[in-house]
Design a protein around this nucleic acid. Structure first.
Length: 106
DNA sequence: AGCCTGACTCGGA
DNA sequence: CTCCGAGCCAGGC
């Protein structure tokens, strides 16, 4: 068995993100843990950034504060929020999601 | 090979 | 509530 396989981690992250059901959200750290990569929350965000696949619901991934992370390119944060609201996710005035309510329990 | 950056998170001030 | 520093890994130059 190979001890470590970098590219394999990305596939595991994508597979985990695909498990997130509609109307629910997950944090980067949560995805990392579910993908069997605890502590690699950054890699999750990085993997999604490099992602170019519509089959992965990357818009359901937010930070641990329940807020949509600001992307490199402006405008996409608004797109992500719109997608989530379309699925029933509710944002507060500050743009914060109630994780207790919408967090996906893997 | 080395250095810098980035969709993160946590604890402390 | 906000701000700062440290730890983490992958990719580009």
């Amino acid at each position: 068995m190979s001890p470590t396989k970098p590219s394999n981690n990305y596939q595991r992250i994508y597979a985990t993100v695909r498990r997130v059901p509609e109307g629910k959200v997950a944090t980067y750290g949560q995805i990392a843990v579910l993908a069997d990569l605890p502590g690699h929350a950054r890699q999750v965000g990085y993997a999604l950034n490099a992602l170019n696949d519509d089959t992965v619901p990357w818009h359901r991934i937010i930070n641990a504060q329940g807020r949509v992370s600001q992307r490199s390119e402006p405008g996409w944060d608004g797109y992500q929020r719109s997608r989530l609201e379309a699925e029933g996710i509710v944002f507060s005035d500050r743009g914060v999601i109630d994780l207790k309510r919408f967090r996906w329990q893997g």
